[in-house]
């Protein structure tokens, strides 16, 4: 056998985006191969949009062999919901939507009220009910380790008990690329194919792959609530008081979560190239700049994950 390498395949080994893509696709295929009823948790955000592209590639020329599941808090950006429906149709995937509102009514859950009220915690109930309803044994999520310090600790195959709980002190050893997805009935695994991607990697990949995004990721004019230095999109369901100032700003969103807890950045970046350049230059982290829910306590994410959150 000759040792001369074709330039094409050796340059691919050197390209970090190709390496990350190859790893993510390997993880997707492990999920499909090891589990009977996997699902892809889809939020309408750029990370889960990236997951859908990776899933398409992993199973091409076939269709994605699992449904997209969206846990809808009822507080999503309308643009994200529109995009979700378009994308599911475009890639020919089955879309399952479950409403947090329905769980609140059916179970008589108490919602937070007042300023900064969010349904972030309540999503977990709907998620766990949905997992039970469809007997999902694996849920693929778009979490990245660079996002947050509790996520930096989580395995790629993250074992969850029958209550969906993560136990950070007793994680399974995870060796090489040998993912252990063995579970008993009722338990499940959360799988994170883009664990090793950074925010910039995701944006660079979206740019390279020319993946269309919801319009809110690009600069646009919008009516905003100015609160404690954060800019929140104005909506009827957001509680406001006299301290809140309504302003019209030119903004884009760096992450897309609930309207109640996602802050915008002022920006003129109206193309993917411009957004990537802004991300390269930023001195503030993604969650620090845009996630009001994580600014509340130092262990906010760890606590949510222990409770069954993504």
């Amino acid at each position: 056998m000759s040792n001369t390498q074709n330039l094409e395949s050796s340059s691919q080994r050197k390209n970090y985006l190709d390496q990350l893509e190859s790893e993510a696709i390997y993880i997707m295929r492990e999920v499909a191969g090891q589990f009977e009823r996997p699902a892809l948790l889809f939020s309408g955000g750029k990370d889960s949009i990236t997951l859908v592209r990776l899933a398409q590639k992993a199973f091409a020329p076939g269709k994605i062999p699992f449904p997209l599941v969206h846990i809808d808090t009822g507080h999503n950006f309308p643009e994200a919901i529109q995009y979700r429906d378009w994308l599911a149709n475009e890639v020919g995937a089955k879309l399952i939507v479950r409403q947090v509102e329905d769980t609140i009514k059916a179970k008589g859950l108490k919602e937070q009220t007042g300023k900064n009220a969010t349904r972030n915690w309540l999503q977990t109930y709907t998620l766990l009910d949905t997992i039970e309803e469809f007997e999902f044994d694996a849920c693929i999520g778009g979490a990245r380790r660079d996002e947050e310090k509790a996520r930096a600790k989580e395995r790629i195959f993250s074992f969850r008990d029958e209550f969906g709980q993560w136990d950070p002190k007793r994680q399974r050893p995870e060796l090489w690329n040998l993912f252990n997805g063995k579970i008993s009935k009722g338990e499940n695994v959360r799988a994170f194919p883009i664990s090793n991607w950074t925010e910039l990697d995701v944006w660079s990949y979206i740019e390279r792959e020319k993946i269309p995004l919801p319009t809110i990721y690009f600069s646009h004019q919008r009516e905003m609530i100015l609160r404690d230095g954060n800019l929140l999109a104005n909506a009827d369901f957001i509680y406001k008081d006299e301290a809140d100032v309504i302003v019209t700003k030119t903004v884009r969103f760096r992450t897309v979560g609930d309207m109640t807890c996602t802050a915008a950045v002022e920006s003129e970046a109206d193309t993917i190239e411009k957004v990537v350049n802004e991300i390269k230059a930023t001195r503030i982290s993604e969650r620090g700049e845009t996630r009001i829910d994580d600014q509340q306590t130092e262990a906010a994410m760890e606590d949510r994950k222990k409770g069954g959150y993504f």
Binding site: K149, K153, P168, K169
Partner: peptide, 22 residues
């Protein structure tokens, strides 16, 4: 403190599990 991401790690000032940084 940049890498000790779990509450119990910060409390005890030790690293219990692997942390990934980029």
């Amino acid at each position: 403190l940049l890498t000790d991401g779990l509450r119990s790690e910060r409390e005890q000032g030790i690293t219990i599990d692997v942390a990934y940084k980029y």
